[in-house]
């Protein structure tokens, strides 16, 4: 039972991180019908940003804020330079452009920082363990608690923003029908910028949390995580905020449980498993678990 609890906690941890990234994917997709493959790489950008700032002597909170700002800056530049000119292009053009941007980011950081694996060292406080539960003493590190608290808080905050603020409502309007929204006076460009800001900020926090938990980082880390988070967003129903969060958590849990419980040798199929889940889900629910049936846009 402890093993299961431990695995579950690991899974929820990973799932929370996926959820943060998946929400970013969903928000941008909802408005622009754009799958931003570079989103995962923003996670990597945030990690390097935080690492540099900490090395320069900034205290942790400021380093995190700094890395968020850096990541948002990258996200905005990408939007302006690569995606805005393609605003009216078809799905495929934006898809492959986002792939190109992802490759560009990875190689840029590869060039500057070399492919070396580095360690992201957080203060000892985070690795202290807390003991829960009775006879079986389930331990949980402070880092895990931080991940849960931060993720929960952010999801709640973004959810509030989307539901109550004007910009949030404008975002949902654009996601539903951008032409009508524009006719109602919504500035599409401003909404898109806002979506990228929110998405990038979430990805940045996810990056810091991920590296804090798993320690090792290199320029290519973002892409794989991004792809899995994207799979999570699709499983949950892309374009749906709740779906992204749920999909992220679900996928994280499934992935870790799969790795922990299946026999030897099958564990290395972990990543493939994620995609198998994706393919299976899409076979039965083509719009994801929570997605509304999307009519074909002519």
């Amino acid at each position: 039972m402890d093993f299961f609890a431990g695995s579950l906690i690991s899974g929820l941890q990973l799932g929370s991180i996926y959820a943060l990234i998946a929400i970013g994917y969903s928000i941008v997709y909802g408005i622009l019908r754009l799958i931003n493959f570079a989103h995962g790489d923003l996670l990597m950008v945030a990690t390097y940003g935080a690492w540099i700032l900490i090395a320069r002597g900034l205290s942790l909170p400021f380093a995190v804020i700094g890395s968020v700002l850096i990541t948002v800056a990258f996200g905005l530049v990408i939007e302006r330079a690569a995606y805005r000119p393609l605003r009216d292009a078809g799905e495929e053009a934006t898809l492959i452009t986002s792939l190109a941007v992802s490759i560009f980011l990875q190689n840029l950081f590869l060039m500057v920082f070399t492919p070396k694996n580095r360690a992201f060292a957080l203060p000892g406080f985070f690795s202290e363990k807390l003991v829960l539960g009775g006879a079986g003493s389930i331990t949980i590190t402070n880092m895990s608690i931080v991940i849960f608290v931060v993720t929960g808080g952010l999801i709640a905050a973004v959810s509030l923003i989307i539901k109550k603020t004007r910009l949030g409502i404008a975002m949902r309007a654009c996601a539903e029908n951008s032409t009508a929204a524009k006719l109602m006076g919504v500035n599409l460009n401003a909404v898109v910028v806002f979506a990228f800001v929110v998405g990038s900020a979430l990805a940045a926090v996810a990056g810091v949390l991920y590296s804090g938990q798993y320690v090792s980082f290199n320029p290519s880390m973002g892409f794989m995580i991004g792809i899995k988070a994207f799979a999570a967003a699709v499983i949950g129903g892309i374009g749906s905020f709740a779906g992204a969060a749920a999909g992220g958590v679900l996928l994280g849990v499934l992935e870790i449980l799969f790795a922990c419980y299946l026999p030897e040798g099958a564990g290395v199929y972990q990543t493939a498993f994620v995609f198998l889940v994706l393919i299976v889900v899409l076979l039965f629910k083509p719009n994801g678990l929570f997605g509304a049936a999307e009519g074909r846009r002519s």
């Binding site: 792809i227 493939a272 198998l276 994706l278 393919i279 899409l282």
Partner: peptide, 28 residues
């Protein structure tokens, strides 16, 4: 059979999944 049932982006991502699965099979 599974992949071609999707269209557009979903299909593209499924083909990415295909590469991953093929590599996993070759690796293991």
């Amino acid at each position: 059979f599974p992949v071609l049932r999707a269209k557009g982006h979903y299909l593209a991502v499924m083909t990415l999944g295909m590469i991953i699965i093929i590599k996993a099979v070759l690796d293991n």
